[in-house]
Structure formats: structure tokens, C-alpha cells
Write a protein that binds this DNA or RNA. Structure first.
Lengths: 138, 138
DNA sequence: CTTTACTATGACGCGAACGTCAAAGGTGCC
DNA sequence: GGCACCTTTGACGTTCGCGTCATAGTAAAG
């Protein structure tokens, strides 16, 4: 295994060591392994997870709270799916599942809207760039 | 002209009166006209501008500072363009224009990356939704 | 002209997301 | 083992983006 310490983890993910510890503190990421001396040791998998959290926060503009919420939903769905595939009790909480489905669809709709507005903003940007370029090519 | 007061402006834009005053305070929007009694009176144009700021903040996840920066750049470009079209001195600050162009292109690149990450997140969302749906349709 | 409802300004408050500093301990290299 | 450099935990500090009073002025209806 390829263990790295927090400083390198910070450099790879582009956030600070403080932020990483903070994310762990609020339960946004899994606490990594520790050395005997209590030093945090991250695996590639840990880094992947962290990167995805950072992306979701920066790109989607999710608050850390919203992220926690989403991650817990995802976990519950996947757990439930496992139960289903191992043909145990499939009918655990129909109502809860419906709620989750609604929430997810709502999220997707909002994401769609966001992307459309981003597109129009991008057009505006391109417009501006063109104007500046035309001013430069005189 | 169709003048409205801050309460209606707040309802239209979906943000609070406090936020509107705050945006004005930090120079993010133009101070609107005032009545004799110092009451803020907004025009349709003011509202439009405000809406665009709100969108940019919520959709693009820009901080108010970043927005200020972008808006000031845009203003400078349009100003310069006007000067050009009125055939006055066209060669004001070539270097400054180049700087602006670079900044804008950088922004567009980042926006592009954001949109791509959003897409992949959307895929993940769709995946999850499908899983939940399949659990529901048993 | 009074009343009622809205507005302005100033000031303090607040939660989120860290920054920063101190004190203590761990790590790696010679 | 000694040294320089990292890490950890705890605690307080800070910035952003407003929320929430308090106080005083304004608008408009009766």
C-alpha cells in the first residue's frame, strides 16, 4: 500500500491540511488509518474520496452540510441495494425510498437548471472575449 | 418609469432587503435613485442587473468579490469598445487589454471544467435515481 | 393630522469554513 | 541520541454574507 501523510494529501487535493482535518472532524470523510504515533496515513482510496468531496464542494457549490446529506443518502441507497441483491428483506422502507427518489430527482432538476444558466453565462463570456480580441487585432 | 421600492424588489429577485442593501454597500450594484425622503427607488433596469448578480452568485458559485472583479472587467471592456467605435484614441492600453483577455479566457476555461464535472456528477445522480427506481418497481 | 406601515442607517450578532498559534509529541537522517 | 522538521490537538481569531435589533425618518390612507 502507498501511504501518504497529510502534507502530501493537501498538495494533491489542493486544499489545506487544516481543511482536511476539519472535513474529518465534521464527519465528511472517513477517518484514515493512523500510525503508532497517531499520525494520519492516507491511502489512494482516501485521496480519491477526498478529491470527490472537494470537487462537489467547489464545482457544485454544495455546502459541507449538503454534502453530508447527499453522501448519507447515497450510502443508504447502496446499502439497501446490497440487501436486495443478497435477497434479504427487500421491503424495508418503501416510503423512505420514495422520499429519497424525490429528493434525488429534485437535485437533478436543479443541476440541469444550473448547467443551462452556466451555458448562457459562458456565451456571454465568449462574447466579451471576442470583443476584446477584436480590439486587440486593430 | 415604473419605480418600485425595496420590498417589491426583494420579492421579485428572491433575496432579502438586507441582502440588496448589502450588495449596494459593497458596490456590487449601482445605487438606485432615491426619493426626496431618501427612499430607494428601483427601475426595471436596476432589477435586471440585480437578477443577473443573484444568478451569477447562486448558479456560478461566485463569491461577491469575484463578481465585483468580473463586473468591473466587463465595464472596462465595454467602455473601451465605445471609445473605439467613436474613433477616438484606440491605443489606450494595449497591455491592459491583453491582461483582461487572458483573465477572461482563464475564466472560460474554468467554467468549461466546471461544466464537465457537473455533467459527470449528473451521470452519477441519474445512476442513483435508476437504482432507487429499480428498488421501487419490485 | 394622525395613524399605520414601510424605509434608512448603524451596530451588534451569527454560523460556516477554515486560519493561526501554542504546546506537545512523532519522524527521519546523520 | 541529537537535531530539524513534521504532525496533533486545542483553542481562539477571522472573513463572508447576511440576520436582527434599535432608533428615527418617510409614505400614504383615512
Amino acid at each position: 500500500m502507498n501511504w501518504i501523510k497529510i502534507d502530501e494529501a493537501a498538495k494533491i487535493t489542493g486544499i489545506t491540511k487544516r481543511a482536511i482535518r476539519y472535513y474529518e472532524e465534521i464527519g465528511l470523510i472517513q477517518p484514515p488509518e493512523r500510525s503508532d504515533g497517531q499520525v494520519r496515513l492516507y491511502t489512494d482510496e482516501d485521496i480519491k474520496q477526498l478529491k470527490r468531496v472537494v470537487d462537489a464542494k467547489e464545482v457544485l457549490g454544495f455546502s459541507l452540510q449538503e454534502l453530508q446529506h447527499f453522501l448519507s443518502i447515497k450510502e443508504r441507497v447502496l446499502e439497501h441495494k446490497d440487501q436486495y441483491e443478497s435477497t434479504k428483506d427487500t421491503t424495508i422502507q418503501q416510503s423512505e425510498l420514495e422520499e429519497i427518489a424525490d429528493g434525488l430527482k429534485e437535485q437533478e432538476k436543479m443541476l440541469q437548471q444550473k448547467m443551462e444558466k452556466m451555458k448562457s453565462f459562458q456565451e456571454e463570456l465568449k462574447d466579451l472575449i471576442q470583443k476584446v480580441d477584436s480590439l486587440l487585432n486593430v
